[in-house]
């Protein structure tokens, strides 16, 4: 048995020796939204860290943008987020009359979904405007408002989901084959019992 050459030959340090490098801080956090179909809503996908917004967008495309078919990706720096529950506060308020993106979390535990836009002077006013005019915002558990010009979004012709066969990285790329192979070994009732523990939601 030989290990992959790189993994076999990496230079080793004495595990008892202190780390050669000094501690460093983390990169800036960005929240990522993905749009799953053209003109559809932007859905919260997760967070990532990046040197700047441009890199954040490139990195988001190749992580969250590749989990499922996806038409656009948007990133927002955490400091550009104002949250109604006080979790995030906007670091630099934009000039009055800015347009704001509004994302809401309907119930605790739900993901944030971008529901609309408002124009307002300052985050508190934007929050009020959202409650007044954005569908579902008045009853939402938490509201996020974001100065619209701070969000960075892929261009309409940017390629996110790949054009080559991607079924190798999706559960559904295996399902039919796997089931067919199982039936060579197991009867239907044993298989049904086994499948009861399958995940119901998947990419």
């Amino acid at each position: 048995m030989t290990m992959s050459r790189i993994r076999d030959h990496f230079p080793r340090t004495d595990p008892a020796a202190p780390l050669a490098s000094a501690p460093m801080g983390d990169l800036d956090p960005y929240v990522v939204f993905t749009q799953l179909r053209a003109n559809g809503p932007f859905l919260y996908a997760g967070w990532l860290e990046a040197p700047d917004a441009e890199m954040a967008l490139l990195l988001a495309r190749d992580h969250y943008g590749r989990d499922q078919v996806c038409t656009a990706v948007r990133v927002i720096h955490r400091a550009d987020l104002e949250s109604s529950d006080g979790l995030y506060t906007l670091a630099m308020p934009p000039p009055d009359g800015t347009e704001w993106l509004v994302a809401t979390q309907k119930r605790p535990g739900d993901i944030f979904i971008e529901m609309g836009r408002v124009r307002a002077a300052g985050p508190a006013a934007a929050m009020d405007a959202a409650r007044a005019s954005v569908p579902g915002a008045a009853t939402a558990h938490v509201i996020w408002v974001i100065p619209a010009d701070r969000a960075v979004t892929t261009a309409p012709d940017d390629l996110i989901w790949r054009t080559t066969d991607q079924t190798y990285r999706l559960a559904r790329g295996y399902r039919r084959d796997v089931r067919e192979k199982w039936t060579r070994f197991r009867d239907e009732s044993a298989l049904a019992e086994y499948e009861r523990d399958d995940l119901t939601e998947e990419f």
């Binding site: 990532l48 860290e49 990195l59 495309r61 992580h63």
Partner: peptide, 10 residues
């Protein structure tokens, strides 16, 4: 950087 690890692999 974990994010780049993911993207480089993609």
């Amino acid at each position: 950087i974990l994010e780049e690890d993911i993207a480089f692999s993609a």
